[in-house]
């Protein structure tokens, strides 16, 4: 009996270990390839680098990975801030109103959650272009916000529905307005759901590709995904530099994640509730 439980335990570890290796191997390949020379990558795909060569990192850095990261950071922070603020305000009103029109508005929000960005790519592009906001950070922050709001509103809505109303009633009796109640009572107690939404949207917008590809074409405003995609345009086929660029782009986020993974995972898990 004991032997059998042991065997089962080993089996379970084996399953998890196999998947872990499967997950880590490509990341390892990316790291190792960044240190190889072009010829080494292509002629000895399975070997370690012949020497610890950092030149690929230098070439990748010179392409502008640093500024791509800064752009991504700026766009992500701004859009997440807009999403959280506007969705929080809207979801609270929607969750607390009995009016019929509010139900319809909520359904409209859910409907917009289902609209894929490709569906509106052309009109959206023409609008941003017509508004002279191509190649500007604001030009991409606003669509990012607009497409992030529906999901976040739905998430907040569910949270606010379960929020204990007794606290709010007490504040209302003290003469607080709806806005005051929201900021003094509700916001301070909404930390976990805000963190969930913020992290989810941040990961999503940090990695967004399609809109950024269409709207951020100027090199100085490109975000990471478009910047990375641009590494293999017509004339550069520098695979070590591509892998080095991917490493530079990925590693800070990975380290941040590993350090803060407990909060990270707990926050994202809140989405499923």
């Amino acid at each position: 009996m004991n032997g059998r439980t042991r065997l089962v335990a080993i089996g379970m570890h084996l399953i998890l270990t196999v998947w872990t290796i499967f997950v880590v191997a490509p990341i390892g390949l990316m790291l190792i390839s960044a240190f190889k020379s072009q010829a080494e990558i292509f002629t000895k795909p399975l070997s370690l680098p012949g020497s610890l060569n950092l030149s690929a990192f230098q070439r990748a850095w010179n392409i502008g990975i640093g500024s791509f990261m800064l752009n991504s950071l700026l766009v992500t922070v701004l859009s997440v801030a807009v999403i959280i603020t506007t969705s929080g305000l809207a979801a609270y009103v929607l969750a607390r109103s009995e009016a019929k029109v509010m139900k319809w508005l909520y359904i409209l929000i859910i409907a917009s959650f289902a609209i894929p960005v490709q569906s509106v790519l052309v009109p959206l592009y023409q609008m941003v272009s017509g508004g002279h906001m191509l190649n500007s950070q604001l030009g991409i922050v606003l669509p990012y916000a607009a497409f992030g709001i529906p999901f976040t509103t739905v998430l907040f809505y569910a949270f606010f529905l379960e929020f204990p109303r007794e606290l709010e009633e007490a504040a209302r009796l003290d003469g607080c307005s709806r806005l005051q109640i929201f900021f003094r009572i509700v916001v301070p107690l909404s930390g976990p759901v805000v963190a969930s939404a913020a992290i989810f949207q941040a990961v999503f917008n940090w990695n967004e590709f399609l809109l950024a590809l269409m709207m951020l074409t100027e090199k100085s405003v490109r975000t990471l995904p478009v910047g990375i995609y641009g590494l293999t345009t017509q004339y550069s086929s520098d695979w070590p530099a591509i892998m080095a660029a991917l490493t530079i782009a990925t590693l800070p986020l990975l380290i941040l994640f590993i350090l803060a993974q407990r909060h990270f995972v707990r926050s994202l898990a809140g989405l499923g509730k």
């Binding site: 009109p123 023409q126 609008m127 941003v128 272009s129 017509g130 508004g131 906001m133 604001l138 606003l142």
Partner: peptide, 9 residues
């Protein structure tokens, strides 16, 4: 497009 975005921006 122009009108709506102008109000936004």
């Amino acid at each position: 497009a122009a009108a709506t975005l102008a109000t936004l921006a």
